[in-house]
């Protein structure tokens, strides 16, 4: 464990908690893409199946349980409890165009053709594009609530910090996982235009609104 990975995990945890609290406190999931949240629930489920089979550390296990629990709680709030506030019309990204190619790629390019390894690879590839329905929804509505932009900033920052963690591990532990690195770089690149808007607008107290 290094400081970059720890702050990355805490940034990821902050994002998940911010979103859950935003929906719970405002009793509304307006502006939130339910499809992205379903994809994140799939990402955690397929990646953390080893929860049952291997124990790495209390930190590792507890974070996985929290991530999975919050992900399903968020999906539940969006599609069940506060479904009346779910903006289905703007959450129209065709996720099958993500899941099918990612599934095919995971079968073709992986470290080991075993069930758990292919699921893990699928989870890594899926995570890199899971935010697209959310970013697509914001481009369609042309704006995002400020709390949602903080959620997205923390979420984007987490994988950016993981990239620094991989550089650190490469030099100090001679460890690197090309699949995770390439997917992580793609994932972080997808946030770049949002990061630009976040820094130039939200941090200056303005509302995030895209030129419609």
């Amino acid at each position: 464990m290094n400081i970059f990975r720890l702050t990355g995990d805490l940034s990821h945890l902050a994002a998940i908690i911010i979103l859950l609290l935003k929906i719970w406190k405002t009793r509304s999931c307006a502006g939130i893409s339910g499809k992205s949240q379903i994809l994140f629930a799939i990402v955690f489920t397929t990646r953390y199946l080893d929860l049952l089979s291997s124990f790495i550390s209390l930190y590792n296990t507890s974070m996985k349980v929290i991530y999975i629990g919050c992900a399903y709680a968020t999906v539940y709030l969006i599609y069940m409890k506060f479904r009346a506030t779910y903006d289905g019309n703007h959450d129209s990204f065709r996720v099958e165009f993500l899941v099918v190619p990612v599934g095919g790629l995971a079968v073709l390019i992986n470290h080991d053709f075993s069930f758990l390894e292919i699921l893990w690879t699928f989870s890594i590839y899926l995570e890199s594009v899971a935010i697209l329905p959310q970013l697509f929804m914001i481009s369609k509505t042309g704006e995002a609530e400020t709390i949602t932009t903080h959620y997205l900033f923390c979420l984007g920052l987490y994988r950016a910090l993981y990239i620094v963690n991989w550089i650190w591990r490469y030099y100090f532990e001679a460890f690197f996982d090309l699949i995770a690195i390439v997917a992580g770089v793609v994932q972080t690149i997808l946030y770049c235009d949002f990061f630009y808007l976040y820094v130039t607008k939200v941090l200056k107290g303005k509302k995030l609104s895209l030129p419609a």
Partner: peptide
């Protein structure tokens, strides 16, 4: 193969 290395990242 790679999968022998413990996957310790979240």
């Amino acid at each position: 193969a790679f999968s022998e290395i413990e996957k310790d990242e979240l």
